[in-house]
Design a protein around this nucleic acid. Sequence first.
DNA 1: ACAATATCCTGCGAGC
DNA 2: TGCTCGCAGGATATTG
Length: 257
Amino acid sequence: MPELPDVEAVISRIRERLIGRSITGVKVFDMRLATPALSSHIYGKRIRGISRRGKYIRLSVDGLTLVFHLRMTGDLVIKNPEEHTAKHTRLELLLSDGRELRFVDQRRLGVAKVVPDEDFSKIPGLVRMGPEPLSGDFTFESFKTRLGKRRSTIKSALMNQSFVAGIGNIYGDEILFQSGIRPTRKTNGLTDKEMRTLYRKMRYVLNTACAHNADLRGLRRWFVHGRTKGRCPKCGAGLDRLRIQGRYSYFCMHCQR
DNA sequence: ACAATATCCTGCGAGC
DNA sequence: TGCTCGCAGGATATTG
């Protein structure tokens, strides 16, 4: 599920049914999440807002912040009590309108914890979180400067949350494919033109995915990630695959330079 | 500074 | 059918 557009989609799917509701109960099914703060401190509090920073989700209740990170398999869903509870439900918040917010996470790598509002930006993954790629102050100039300071491969940089927030393995591949840049290229070896293309396509790919609520069924044919033995959507050549940072990168040797 | 590796988990499909 | 293996849209600590 969860890269920037997916996290956005989760938030917009549940936002309206959360804001203004109070938390009337907490059920912790995964004891690794059982902290006093989660079990009792948020009880009775009203939900004021839900937002995102990188792939982290911030649920604001009075004075406290519930932090979620979906990692590989996490999801947040709102259900009626009588609806079947998914096998991998780790946490359930009972809401004042009778519904339930459920944190489902098959692989249990996700995060759910409560911190005081002022500590949200201090949690380890957020201290060095890079700029939001879709925000207005993420300018080409700042992107270019940051690229020049690195020597890693461009794929590593895109997936590195302290370089830019919210991009993972899939969108990293799609951004590079649309940009015509190979994942193995060095950040500080890109031409000005390539950097501009990359900047533009990064925002284009993420914006497009967000506009479709990360439901990519209509766009899938333009994608390269995960197409083992697949063909390039542009030129038809066989796609290439190699490991970068322990993850598979998919790309077209012909269309990407 | 960066790359590679192991780790946290569970489930699925491929290949035998 | 049942087994093992590799792999999965992530982040982090450790080692080289």
